[in-house]
Simulated scan of single mutants.
Amino acid sequence: MYEMKTVVGTSQIDKDGLLKTSSIFDLMQDCSFFQLDSEEELTKYFNENNISMFLVSRQVDIYKLPKYSDKIIVRTYVYECNEAYGYRNTVIYDENYNELVICYAIGGFVDLSNGNLIRVPSSFIEKIKFDEKQKMNYLPRKINIDNDLLKETDRFKVKKYFIDDNNHVNNARYIDMSLDYADDYYKRIRIEYRTPAELGDTIIVRKAVIDDKVLLKFDSEDNKTYALLEFSYSL
């Protein structure tokens, strides 16, 4: 388990003074990588074998958004792992450890030399420390979307400020991209990450509204899917 304490700053809030959705993702991502870095055996194995973990999916349930200057606590841990995927909970609390945002995420082991998903030996899995699985409504990793219901809404080029040190669009930037297509304030966000988008790629936005959900599909010009997003206005 890894925990970090911070204060909601002005660069992290929206027009209403509340923590931005993309800032939620940034905080969770930072905490997760700090936790990975703190695991010496894990870091050593990754470095020696040129391996990393790429996010496959994330579900975020939002109960209450903290506001500017609120003290918050971000806690993350791995609760399960197999030879192909790791499963993680990340929770944002207020300063009294009341749950504000709960997340579960799935990451895949990736060979950095070619970007392919790989399987790691069971002997490596045995070295990982697991914590108790968080109580939440765990929805499936895959998001079902009827392509016939989707309508092209927009298209744009991937800019430099979307790119992280893996040279593709950072997972939190898909949230920034989606802000023009989903209204405030949703209670649950699900994202399924497919093909990493790179600098200069054209992203085609396709959208559908079904009941209380907004569905977004970010596609490439050659019909690959970069990411699927589902915004729900109820838990």
Results as ranks from 00 to 15, higher is better:
1 M>N: 12
12 Q>V: 06
22 S>V: 11
25 F>A: 09
25 F>T: 02
30 D>K: 04
34 F>L: 14
34 F>D: 15
42 L>P: 00
43 T>K: 15
45 Y>D: 05
50 N>V: 07
51 I>L: 14
55 L>H: 03
58 R>T: 15
67 K>H: 09
68 Y>W: 13
70 D>F: 06
72 I>H: 07
80 E>G: 07
84 A>K: 13
87 Y>M: 13
88 R>K: 13
88 R>L: 06
90 T>P: 05
95 E>H: 09
96 N>P: 11
101 V>R: 06
102 I>W: 00
103 C>I: 05
104 Y>V: 10
105 A>Y: 09
109 F>C: 04
110 V>M: 12
114 N>F: 04
116 N>T: 09
123 S>H: 04
126 E>H: 01
127 K>F: 02
127 K>V: 08
131 D>M: 11
136 M>Y: 08
144 N>L: 09
146 D>P: 12
150 L>C: 05
151 K>T: 12
163 I>H: 06
167 N>P: 04
171 N>H: 08
172 A>E: 04
177 M>I: 15
191 I>E: 05
193 Y>P: 05
195 T>P: 02
197 A>G: 12
199 L>P: 04
202 T>G: 05
206 R>M: 07
207 K>G: 01
209 V>R: 03
213 K>T: 07
213 K>N: 11
213 K>E: 12
219 D>Y: 00
223 N>Y: 08
229 L>A: 10
235 L>K: 11
